[in-house]
Design a protein around this nucleic acid. Structure first.
Lengths: 124, 124
DNA sequence: ACCATGTATGCCTTGACTGGCATATAACTG
DNA sequence: CAGTTATATGCCAGTCAAGGCATACATGGT
């Protein structure tokens, strides 16, 4: 039931930044604090929240504690919004169809400007 | 960047419930309040938050206000966690591969290695 | 116009969260 | 063992969000 804590953990902007940093690579606390412009104690507290949400794991390296991202809870998030993704894909579909019709009516208008907003999912 | 309001909006359990309800179908405020076990005023406030986060839209039907889900911001969420999804897919892949190997080798009792990165003294 | 229904807003209290500072704790170094 | 580095924790104050209640606002019906 890390559900609640998961959302709460990610609700904080600083913590999202931290998670972003850890996405690039594992980092020790000091580095994170520095990158976030936060004090070390605050950073430690945020990391504690993330840890309790299961979002990060710690590895001890001498006196340093290197935090790394744990992707599992993110999967949970993804699972949560799966139903909504369907809905939004439908919307895009409808939009696409409408555009398609328009394009058909307007004949060739050479428009491929749309960025790929499709679900990047490769699994189902 | 995902709107801060989006995360804040979804950080609240009641609001997630509301969003879930609206996923099924659009509903008037009273119905939502009833389903959530919240007072009508509280519900209205939550809906306001969701509205300002762009998550819901209102349609006026007589004195009723029928709220419906707007899937667009959810797409934003999805976009945010896209990079993480990659990571977690890799993890699953690696896990699958590891299990596969283990099954293949079968003889070695699990090479425990260091998959337990928990802090040894995590106390509260 | 009056009243009923449905919803939004304002006020207030309470509780949670955040950040900083000082300090305790743990681990390495000489 | 003392000293230094790296991190965690406790305490405090400021902020903010959530829920309840009363009430204002809007729409429809008679």
């Amino acid at each position: 039931m890390s559900d609640a804590s998961l959302w709460t953990a990610l609700a904080d902007p600083h913590r999202r930044v931290i998670v972003g940093l850890l996405l690039e690579r594992p980092r020790p606390v000091g580095e994170i604090a520095d990158a976030c412009g936060l004090s070390q104690p605050s950073t430690s507290k945020h990391l504690k929240v993330l840890r309790e949400a299961g979002l990060v794991r710690v590895r001890q390296d001498a006196q340093r504690r290197v935090y790394a991202l744990d992707p599992a809870p993110i999967a949970e998030l993804d699972a949560w919004l799966a139903p909504y993704r369907k809905l939004w894909n439908d919307s895009l579909d409808a939009l696409g169809r409408r555009l398609d019709e328009t394009a058909a009516t307007a004949a060739t208008r050479g428009e491929s400007s749309d960025e790929d907003n499709r679900a990047p999912d490769s699994k189902d």
